[in-house]
Every structure is written in C-alpha cells, then in structure tokens.
Design a protein around this nucleic acid. Structure first.
Lengths: 152, 152
DNA sequence: ACTGAAATGTCAAGGCC
DNA sequence: GGCCTTGACATTTCAGT
C-alpha cells in the first residue's frame, strides 16, 4: 500500500496530539477534511496506529518512583519462561518487560509510589515468582527524556 | 481537590482508549454526558492528563530494533551533564533517557530499523557526543509487556 | 480527493439537588 | 459543588461526483 510523505506527517501530528480535529490537520497538511479523515482511517485499518491513549502524569497520581529491574532466571525451559512472563505481565507495577540479550534475561520498568512501595513490590510480588535466580535494580534519579513518538 | 473513585475509573478508561466518546464513558460510569465532560476538563486542567497521543506500531514503520544502552560519563561536572542530556535529548533514535543509580549514569531506550542502523547510531551519533566514558548495550529479543497505562 | 449534507459529538447556560 | 437537561454549534462520517 501507499505510505507517502503526507501519511508520515499525519502520523507525526497524531503522535504529538491525537485530539486535534481533522480540520486542524487538514490546514496543516493542505488537504480537505475528508481526505484527512480517509487517510487516518486507512492508517488505523492497516495497523499503523495501535491505539489512542491519554498519557497520565505519574506524579499527580502518587506514582513518582521509577525503577528498572534486571532479572535472571534459574533455568530457561519453555515452562519457566512462559510462566514467568505471564506472571510478570499480570503485575500492575510492571509497565514494561523486555526479554533482552546480555548478562540478565529480562529488563523490567517498575512504577510505584516510593522506595517503601518498591521494597514491598520486590519482596511480596516480584521475588515471590518462582524460578527467579537473581535481580539487580536501578533507580531513576531523573527522567531526562520520555516520548512515545517514533521519528521516521 | 477531589479525586474520587469515578475520576480514577475515568482515567483508567482514557488511558486505554482516549477516542471513546463522552457518551460511551457516561454509560460505563453511570453519569450524564456533561458530568463526564466536566470531570475530564477538570482532570486536564489539574494536570492529571499530560496529553493525548496516537501510539504507532513500530514494526509497521520499519523500526523493529529496540536496544537499551547504559552510559557512563567521564566526569560529572554540571557542564558535562547538562550538555550530554541536551545532546541525547535531540537524538531522534533515543525515545527515553533516564539518569539512574548504579554502575552506569544513564539508561537509554533506542529505537532503530535494525542492527546495522544501531551500529550506525552508536558510531556516528551516540559516541560522537563528548565526555562519554563507556557504554554497554542490551538488545531487546522480545517485548513481553509494554503499556503506557498507570494502575492506581 | 473534493463538495455537501446527515448523523453524531462537544460544550455552554441555567436550574436542581 | 457536582449533577442534570436543553440547545447551539462543531466535528465526524458518508454518498455522490
């Protein structure tokens, strides 16, 4: 299918602010409202846009503590891996979980209220998952950059 | 100000899908359309909602390679830190950058097309920033979980 | 891809617990 | 203070060209 420079621009705009009206977008792109509408529908249908979401200010909802946890499993049998991934996915505090190369198997991004809550999380939730070998945590001192917008 | 159970639910819904109409939300929350509207405006005004965005499927736009880079600076003078953070923020490939505790100073999330592009990025862009001491990269094998929605 | 028109949504005003 | 109803206005959505 076609994915031209205009679609690119359109995705850029929608990644910055998805609440813009098609009219505003049509001005920026020098198109008619309907043309914009149809392009957006096409992009949604073809799977370019996964979803539209509101980004919430974590500090406002009392979740100011961010940590990254490296995790190594004891074993790497299919069983263990599937189970671990499932259990970790179900943890509300875990916003992201990546299977990665290197010394550790997984990298988790954890969001909680404070250090006390983090300790709670580690002791009661994370390490209560079986087959975890070792963990190594890093605390976020400052969020220098954080965007959901892909540049292309 | 008040931030009750309904606001909570509302934020949850908006984090899942910000394109829902107020009517749909009003049904889910057993409120009138206007009540929903006013609560949303209040949440926006009070800074609970940072922005509304479209989340783009990275694979569809040929950005399938994700890496996390640890970075250690040579020195930590105000000067070096400020400059590094600024330069890193300007790199399109860097979606996230955190100042963290531990052996390394920073953790970066980098998004590019493939391993070749990643090498390009490291050699030509990242390590051309001065005062970088050492780096350590981890490649994402699989994205097990990735959400922007905060649970509270 | 555009015009135009119907359907649907947003948002302000005034009144009621 | 928050909720509701009403109505004006804007936007989305779709048919026809």
């Amino acid at each position: 299918m076609i994915f031209d420079a205009i679609d690119k621009k359109l995705l850029e705009y929608l990644q910055q602010d998805s609440k813009q009206t098609n009219k505003e977008l049509s001005n920026k792109l020098n198109l008619s409202v309907t043309a914009v509408y149809e392009r957006i529908k096409k992009l949604e249908k073809e799977g370019f846009v996964n979803k539209y979401v509101a980004l919430v200010n974590k500090d406002q909802v009392d979740k100011s503590f961010v940590a990254f946890c490296h995790i190594k499993l004891i074993q790497h049998t299919q069983d263990y891996v599937v189970k671990f991934e499932k259990e970790v996915t179900n943890l509300n505090e875990v916003l992201e979980c990546y299977h990665i190369s290197g010394d550790y198997d997984y990298l988790l991004k954890v969001l909680v209220k404070d250090m006390v809550a983090f300790r709670e999380f580690m002791v009661k939730k994370l390490t209560s998952i079986n087959h975890i070998g070792s963990t190594h945590s890093m605390f976020v001192i400052n969020e220098v950059k954080h965007t959901t917008a892909i540049n292309f």
